[in-house]
Amino acid sequence: MSAVAHHDHHDDHHELHNPMEPTRKEQIRMNRMGLWMFCLSEAFLFFAILAARFYLWRDADGAAIRPYLEQGPALAFTVVLLLSSYFMNRAEVAIANDDKKTFSFGMLMTAGLGLVFLLGVIFVEWGLMLPEPHLPVNGGAFAAVFYAMTGMHAIHVVTGVILILIVWNNGRKGLYDSKEHWAVEACAIYWHYVDLVWVFFYPAIYLIGYAVKVPHHSAIISFFM
């Protein structure tokens, strides 16, 4: 069906033959399990950061606190990210029905919204390029955990966007159809997972505990400036 499948058999003649090679179906089943195992593994990563958040962000009485941050933009970007998951789902359903046009649109929308989220995190939440970041890097455990949570999540969003663009590009070349679209499915699982992480991170940063204002510093250190 696809060009690649033909390409596979070109320089095969001197290859050793594996009598127990998994079929494509078996391989995809293993891939899926591998991806879920990866998600499990990553859960420990995000869990550790969340644990740090709840351990460090406490007042003298042990009650949960959070830094005073602007709520509006964060809520907006959260909506953007959740919306992107919808388009990811549309794209996956579309390719399963051989609807390549909707697939392309969905993938691009997902990547675009992911990018918007990413820029929002970097420019608005981190305040990069602003005269003064919302949370200075040397703002105690508030800054440390805030940058750890948003940064670690942002790295996952970046890789997600790159993956989506690669898969979109390969889809444009006609590599995927209703029978063979594991890459799209993998992208979708990963993207939904990254969104799910944010569903836990967002309240942890912006909602749980009472807000404490971080004083402005005479000497602000910013690595990013």
């Binding site: 740090a52 460090l56 962000w57 406490r58 007042d59 606190i65 830094p67 040397n138 703002g139 105690g140 455990a141 508030f142 800054a143 440390a144 955990v145 750890a148 404490v212 204002k213 971080v214 004083p215 510093h217």
Partner: peptide, 17 residues
């Protein structure tokens, strides 16, 4: 500041952990 090697009196006074 995850592990407290750097601490700043203004922050502590403001209740920042």
């Amino acid at each position: 500041d995850f592990f407290g090697a750097i601490a700043d009196p203004t922050l502590v006074a403001a209740g920042v952990p």
